[in-house]
Design a protein around this nucleic acid. Structure first.
Lengths: 134, 134
DNA sequence: AGCGGTATTTACGTAAAAGTCAATTCCACG
DNA sequence: CGTGGAATTGACTTTTACGTAAATACCGCT
C-alpha cells in the first residue's frame, strides 16, 4: 500500500501529482518559489490539507492566466488580515483591483462564448443543409 | 496630422499600439506568427478594421490566459465554416471543448470572487473594530 | 538637398515556468 | 543485508512571448 502515507492527514508528492495532473517538478518549483511549504520527514515532503488547498489555488490561478507573481499576491491576501489600519485599507484596495481584473475576464469569457455560439450555429446550419441535400 | 493615415479605413501600427497599449514588437510578433496579415504600402503595414478586430481578439485571449497556439486555434474557428461534413463535425466538437474550458474558467473566477469577498469582509470588520476602539 | 520623425528588418537577449537528466538517498521487504 | 522502487537534489535545457538595439529606409517639409 504505497499509495497512502501511513500517518493520516499527510499527502505524498506523488499523490498530489496524480490528483492534480502536474509533475513533481512543478510542485517543487512552487515550493522553491515559496508558495507551498510542506513539512519534511527526513528529506521527503509531507503535504498537509492546507498545502493541498494552496496547490489547488495555484493551479486555479494558472488556469485564469495569472503569473506566479500574481498568484503569490493573491495568496498573500488570504493570510490573516493585518492589524494595522493602513495595511488593512491597502488590502481592501488590492481586493478591489483583483475583482476588477476578474470582472474583465468574465466579460472576455462572455464575449468569447457568444462568438463560439455563432460559430456553432453556422456550422449546424451548414450541416443541416448537407443533411437535407443528401 | 501624423496621427491618422491619409487613406481612411487604415490604421498605422502606432495607432494600434496606442489604442491597445501594446508595443510595435508585439504586433509584429503576432504577424510573424501568422495571426494578423496587414496589407503593405511599400514596406509599411496598413491595418484594416478586420486586422484591428483580430488584434483585439488576440489580446482578449491573452487576458484569459490562452497561449498563442490556442489563440491561433480559436481564430481558425472564426473562418467561414468548412464545406465538408467531417470538418464541420470536428469544428462543432472543438467549439464544445473550448466552451468547457471557458466554463471552467468561469467557475474559477466565481470561486476566487467568493474568496475575495471573504477577505474584504474580514478586513472591513477589522477596520470597524479599529474605528470603534479609537 | 537635407532633416526629423516614424517604420522596418535582423538578430540577439531574457524572464517565466517548467522539462529533463544524472547522481544520490532512503526505506521496506524478502 | 542488499536490492528495487520512490523521493530528492542540482544542473542544464527548452519553450513561449516578447524586449531591445543597430542599421537602414521612407516620407513630408522647408
Amino acid at each position: 500500500m504505497a499509495a497512502r502515507s501511513e500517518i493520516a492527514d499527510y499527502f505524498t508528492i506523488t499523490e498530489l501529482t496524480r490528483e492534480f495532473g502536474v509533475s513533481t517538478r512543478t510542485i517543487r518549483f512552487y515550493e522553491d518559489e515559496g508558495l507551498i511549504k510542506p513539512v519534511r520527514r527526513g528529506r521527503t515532503r509531507l503535504f498537509r490539507p492546507g498545502d493541498r488547498w494552496i496547490l489547488s489555488l495555484i493551479l486555479r490561478g494558472k488556469r485564469l492566466g495569472f503569473s506566479i507573481a500574481e498568484i503569490r499576491e493573491i495568496l498573500a491576501m488570504y493570510k490573516e488580515p493585518p492589524g494595522e489600519e493602513g495595511q488593512l485599507r491597502l488590502l481592501v484596495r488590492k481586493v478591489g483591483e483583483k475583482r476588477h481584473e476578474l470582472e474583465q475576464k468574465r466579460r472576455d469569457i462572455d464575449e468569447t462564448m457568444r462568438e463560439l455560439d455563432q460559430v456553432e450555429e453556422a456550422s449546424l446550419a451548414r450541416l443541416a443543409e448537407l443533411g437535407v441535400a443528401r
